[in-house]
Computed example of a mutant assay.
Amino acid sequence: MNLEWVGYLAATLTTLSFVPQAVKTIRSRDTSGISLGMYVVFIAGVACWFGYGVVLGSWPMILANALTFVLAAVILGLKLRHG
């Protein structure tokens, strides 16, 4: 039984859960409530999950973490610029 759909569902839900906060932060440019240390560690973790997905050839992991990395990197950039 191929359960890869569970991976796609999990990847979609976790990535989508991050989008509203990313959009709000990008629009407002307000990063005062964001921890710089947390975002640095978070992006490192997302990069590791992306790499692990590549090694496994797991498209749900690759796609979700690539998108999450981009969104988080934009927020980190805003934090560094405006924070």
Rank of each mutant, 00 (worst) to 15 (best):
K79G: 01
N65W: 03
L78V: 05
S28Q: 07
A22L: 04
N65M: 04
S58P: 03
V55L: 15
G37A: 08
L36R: 14
M1H: 15
V54T: 07
L16N: 00
A11D: 04
V74R: 07
L56V: 03
W59Y: 15
V6C: 13
F69R: 00
T12W: 07
V40H: 00
R81F: 07
I43L: 15
I43Y: 01
A72M: 07
L67P: 00
T14N: 06
T31G: 03
W5D: 07
A73Y: 02
Y39L: 13
Y39P: 00
G45E: 04
V40C: 13
F69C: 00
R81N: 02
N65P: 00
S32E: 12
T15C: 11
F42G: 01
M1N: 14
L71I: 04
Y8H: 13
T12Y: 08
A47F: 09
D30R: 03
P60S: 12
A47P: 01
S35C: 07
F50D: 00
G7R: 12
S58R: 07
G45W: 04
Y8N: 09
L67S: 10
G51D: 08
V6M: 15
Y52S: 06
W5M: 12
N2D: 15
T14L: 10
S58Q: 10
G33K: 10
Q21P: 06
I26Q: 09
T12N: 09
F50K: 02
G7N: 10
S35K: 06
G51S: 12
L67K: 02
I34K: 03
V74C: 08
M1W: 14
I75W: 05
L76H: 07
G77Q: 06
A64Y: 03
A22P: 00
W59D: 08
F50E: 01
G53P: 01
M1I: 14
T15M: 10
I62F: 09
G33A: 12
V41F: 15
D30G: 01
P20W: 12
W49L: 09
H82P: 00
S32V: 02
F69Q: 00
F50H: 00
A64M: 05
M38A: 12
A64K: 06
A72R: 02
L16V: 05
Y52P: 03
K79M: 03
I43D: 05
Y52I: 12
W5F: 15
M61Q: 14
G57P: 05
N65C: 03
W59A: 14
L78C: 04
G33Y: 10
A73H: 04
V70E: 02
R81H: 11
G33D: 10
A47Q: 02
D30N: 12
A22W: 01
M61A: 15
M1F: 15
T25I: 06
G7F: 11
G57D: 11
G33T: 08
Y8L: 13
W59C: 05
